[in-house]
């Protein structure tokens, strides 16, 4: 395709002209860092018109589209579900997409990446250590018969559900990890998110993996490096309460260690789930996946 024919990429900035007038212009003081050029992050100021419903993420995208296309910002859903746009706005851990600029009551909005995770570029941090710790606590149901009974549910009472339901709202944005005082110095500390998930799966009545998870969290850099500063719960944008979960995890380790290890997981329901059975699916699956066609 010739270069002249190539269609120019066009970013559509919401045009609110005639619908709304900007209420005021706000200075966005954005932390910038380019690993190839800079040794240290620095701040650069941008002037952004702010409407009634402009969020910090809208402001950053306005900068990216209109003022400085080199700004790197990670975002996805724009409605506080994916947890990609976690950053520190005016010194406080927030989701950029859920933070209304006018609600900050400030003419200068300082935006910088979250703490305690390696900085890749501008507002983007490397979340891999965070997710590695999440994986480390085995955030899934562990029991011997989980493969054999995939066509029926495990029984669970509403009370048993309530024990952990709050913690399932975690979107893994990393804000608690950024707010926690221990992660600020302890790179091996599992962090509030992973520990809360360890509790969430341990207390789940369908789970029988307490012994495995206790080995992970009962470590010199595990649950006991939490000193209940509560910063994680104060920072959480979804109302999850990691501080609560970690104290409960400590309680299990102190008082119910053996009871949890020998606890019988919830039984499976008598009722077979309708639809194709696992055996049928397995039967229809090819023994080997076809290899991709050779390049011509």
């Amino acid at each position: 395709m010739a270069a002249s024919e190539q269609k120019q990429l066009e970013f559509k900035v919401p045009n609110l002209e005639g619908v709304e007038k900007p209420i005021k212009n706000v200075i966005f003081r954005v932390s910038r860092f380019d690993p190839d050029r800079d040794r240290e992050p620095y701040y650069r100021d941008y002037e952004v018109p702010v409407y009634r419903f402009t969020t910090v993420l809208d402001g950053l995208l306005y900068i990216k589209y209109n003022l400085d296309p080199t700004l790197a910002v990670r975002y996805s859903c724009r409605m506080g579900v994916c947890g990609s746009c976690a950053m520190i706005v005016n010194g406080r851990e927030r989701l950029a997409c859920k933070t209304n600029v006018l609600s900050l009551n400030s003419n200068i909005v300082t935006v910088r990446p979250i703490n305690n995770l390696p900085l890749i570029r501008d507002l983007v941090t490397d979340l891999r250590p965070f997710f590695e710790k999440h994986k480390k606590v085995m955030p899934y149901i562990i029991r011997d018969d989980i493969e054999a009974h995939q066509d029926r549910e495990f029984l669970q009472s509403p009370a048993e559900l309530n024990e952990y339901m709050m913690l399932t709202d975690c979107i893994k944005c990393g804000l608690c990890y950024s707010a926690c005082p221990t992660t600020a110095t302890d790179a091996l500390f599992l962090g509030p998110q992973a520990l809360a998930q360890a509790y969430r799966y341990t207390i789940d009545s369908r789970d029988a993996g307490a012994a495995l998870r206790f080995d992970v969290v009962d470590d010199p850099h595990g649950v006991w490096r939490c000193h209940f500063a509560g910063a994680c719960s104060a920072a959480c944008p979804k109302g999850v309460d990691p501080a609560f979960a970690i104290q409960q995890l400590k309680k299990l380790l102190l008082y119910k260690r053996n009871a949890m290890k020998s606890r019988k997981p919830a039984p499976e329901s008598e009722k077979v789930r309708e639809g194709t059975s696992v055996e049928e699916v397995l039967k229809s699956m090819p023994k080997e996946w076809p290899s991709p066609p050779a390049p011509k």
Binding site: T182, T185, D186, A187, L188, P220, H221, W224, R225
Partner: peptide, 9 residues
């Protein structure tokens, strides 16, 4: 010991 373990790894 707790303080020192958190300081350095």
């Amino acid at each position: 010991r707790v303080l020192l373990l958190e300081l350095n790894q």
